[in-house]
Amino acid sequence: MQTTADRCVLGDEIAAIIFGVDGVVIDSARVAAAAWKSVLDPLLRSYATMQEAEVRPFEVRDDYLEHMHGRPRLDGVRDFLASRGITLPYDDLRGLAGREEELFLTEVRRHGIASFASTVDLVRVVRRRGLRTAAVSVDWYASELLTRAGVAEMFDVRLDGLEAPGTMLPVHPECGLLLEAAQRLRTPPARTAVVEQSPAGVSAARYGAFALVVGVDRIGRPAALRDHGADVVINDLSRLRLLAEPAMVGRP
């Protein structure tokens, strides 16, 4: 493989690629941020009234990227509320996270969800070249997202927290899913690349000793992915290509 600061070329040693669903295959950030705003703004207004303070609404870009993007729901909402000086019991946090998930899925089921065109292009090319592909997520509804985006059949293996809840490992929760996906692909981790957008996903792939760990940074914060073990960080899958593959896969 050949890597630079913003580009990666896969060699013949890679026989399969495991893609994270959220943020790599599926473009879910806009819908998720809107759902969080619907959940959190009433709480923020209520809190401001009690404190006799000015309301500071949830910012769908800055607050989402700072606290929620690429993180488990409970961790994200806890950190966001802490940034506003609000502390809630665990059950209340879980209720907010559950409500956001409900609104997110309602929107997806009503209007659908988009995939990233560059990812779809890459998957088509690697499959033509004989590489096996998997789409993996700890979210229980990830397979539904792939189906509603019209890309489910592009992957040899689809694995989420609903289908394989018993594959989790205690240290890196996502590592069990990645290893299970590699097993179903019949490709050892030493010949498998992982493409992930969250620091937790990158860390899990590194812990699982996968041949190549590619971080996808769409928000301008590559350091976190590198710090968690990414071999290379790219901002879009148009920067990932196969050795001797035409330029359509690796558009500059």
Rank of each mutant, 00 (worst) to 15 (best):
D91V: 03
V157T: 10
P42I: 15
A29I: 05
H67C: 13
R127G: 12
A33I: 12
L240I: 05
L10S: 02
M248V: 08
V138Q: 14
A205E: 07
D62T: 10
G11F: 02
D160V: 15
V77G: 09
R61Y: 01
L225E: 01
V9S: 00
R251N: 06
P246M: 04
G166H: 13
P189Q: 06
D6K: 02
Q2M: 01
G161E: 11
G150L: 13
D63V: 00
C175K: 09
E59P: 01
G150T: 04
R191Y: 08
T192F: 12
G150N: 04
V216S: 02
L81R: 15
T147F: 14
E101K: 14
V171H: 02
T147H: 15
V216I: 15
R7T: 07
G11A: 08
P252M: 00
A117V: 11
S38G: 10
C8A: 09
G176Q: 06
V9G: 00
P89M: 02
R148A: 15
P188T: 03
E102R: 15
L96R: 06
S115C: 09
S203T: 04
E54L: 07
L179F: 13
G95M: 12
A224Y: 01
E100Y: 09
L162R: 15
R241L: 02
V151C: 13
R132E: 09
D156V: 09
P42S: 08
P222V: 06
P188R: 08
V151I: 14
D12C: 01
L177Q: 07
L145T: 04
P89L: 03
L243W: 10
V21N: 05
A5R: 13
R124H: 13
T147C: 10
F104V: 09
G166K: 13
V125M: 12
A149P: 00
D41Q: 03
R84W: 08
V125C: 14
D79K: 14
A149F: 12
I234D: 02
G76L: 07
F116A: 10
L243R: 01
E101Y: 08
R78W: 08
A205P: 07
E144F: 08
M1V: 00
T187H: 10
G98Y: 14
P199R: 03
D12Q: 04
V31P: 02
V24L: 05
M50Y: 07
G166S: 11
R184H: 07
L177H: 08
D63F: 11
